[in-house]
Amino acid sequence: MNITEANITNNNGLLSKEEKEPVIICKDLTKKFGDFVAVDHITFEVNKGEIFGFLGANGAGKTTAMRMLSGLIYPTSGQASVAGFDVYHKQEKIKKNIGYMSQRFSLYDNLSPLENITFYGGVYGVPRKEIKERSRLLIEQLGLQNEANKLVASLPLGWKQKLAFSVAIFHEPKIVFLDEPTGGVDPITRRQFWDMIYEAASRGITIFVTTHYMDEAEYCNRITIMVDGKIEALDTPGNLKRIYNENSINDVFYKLARKATREE
């Protein structure tokens, strides 16, 4: 599939063609672990304020790709820049300019919401005064006033995830990486979560998200489907359904991912 063309045919994005401003640029990005090619020459661009869905079967290379882009591991070959910084030489700068949230690790259970915000704000160098003011505001927005000083462990999962997302974007990163942020969350909270994602994107924060919920994939401006370390498809959800002649992204995904030959 021609990726450049896919970018141009994007009619679902928030920005028109003229305003496009890539914040993630990947070219032939590859990661090998010994003989095993975890990520195999992937090439794409993600634009400012875009919601970019990153799909793939277990073991397709999603996590590895995400780790390279968030400055946690070095690529074997290829080029990539994130928020304008090179993934080989500027890992520290990248980390400052991105947010990260995963289903597994996000908040400290034995700290209160307020303490979590203060901690992460501090880690990312948000000034103390600002942390104080904004954390109060954030607690209000999330409706956590009564829980602000209770331990995170006692919050329902949905609230935790919403709080975790807020914490991940608290330092106003250029890009936020979300690794299966809504696993197991109830359908209403999941939608509230996506409201927050939409809102963040409309403020210009780029959203890079993986999910197992295929209906959520449809909320994205563009999605890629990775199979065996390669990008099998990259387009808007609407175009993908048209191209593969399927009714839902679920079916498109199934069609592509079942071809996979390798497992984790």
């Binding site: 277990n58 299966e180 991912a257």
Partner: peptide, 10 residues
């Protein structure tokens, strides 16, 4: 099927 991809779930 939690945490399992679409193909395996199917």
């Amino acid at each position: 099927t939690t945490g399992v991809d679409v193909v395996s779930r199917f």
